[in-house]
Amino acid sequence: MRKILAVTAVALLAACNPMEQMDGAETLIEEFHADFNESDFNAIWNGASQEFRESLTRAEFDDFMSRMRTSVGEYQDGSQVGFNINTNNGTTLTEITLDTTYENGTADEVFTFIGTGDDMALLNWNIDSTAPWAEPEVAEPAPGTAGEKPGV
């Protein structure tokens, strides 16, 4: 019985190796920032977890990301200021906190990933930036409709 428990404990520790979790998260953050700079929101959406994609519609995501990209500009540099790795009931969450510099200001970013190894995916991205928030784009009225009253 002790051999089985020891093997199980070693397997669990190997599956949740903190250094591997950190390396995986750092790689995903680098990919996120590269995709963000290219405005490749499709890549970010497709690489995110199912839970992330179920938390908002694709249109809401695209709108938010477009406004954020317009607001902060291009990602330039960042440094990690904190991390937390938590495994509970077989689910591993890895949270990385960064101080970042963007073209239009600085930001505090918190990335949360779910899973381990190749199954790690973005669960949440929280950004608090000093850059002014971009106003939403307003659709232009169709030609010949500006100022017209219905039924006229």
Rank of each mutant, 00 (worst) to 15 (best):
I85F: 14
A11E: 07
F83D: 10
F32I: 00
G151A: 08
D63Q: 11
N88E: 14
N46W: 06
D77T: 13
D63S: 12
I127S: 04
D40C: 03
G115A: 00
L5G: 08
D128N: 12
W45S: 04
M19A: 09
Y75G: 07
D108P: 02
A134V: 00
A142R: 11
Q21T: 14
S66Q: 11
G78H: 14
G73R: 02
L56T: 09
T57P: 06
S66E: 12
S66I: 02
N104T: 03
V7S: 13
R2S: 11
L93Y: 14
N84D: 15
E30G: 07
G147E: 03
E135Q: 12
P132I: 03
G24R: 00
N89S: 15
R69T: 06
H33C: 06
T92F: 04
T130D: 09
L28F: 04
I85M: 12
T101M: 02
T145Q: 06
L98E: 10
T92N: 02
E20F: 15
A43H: 02
M22F: 05
K3C: 08
I85C: 05
F64T: 12
A131T: 01
D119A: 08
A139V: 13
P136I: 03
W125L: 11
A142K: 14
N89I: 07
N42V: 13
R58A: 09
T94I: 13
L123S: 08
E148V: 08
P18T: 07
S55F: 14
T130A: 08
N84C: 13
G144Y: 01
I44P: 08
G47P: 03
M19V: 15
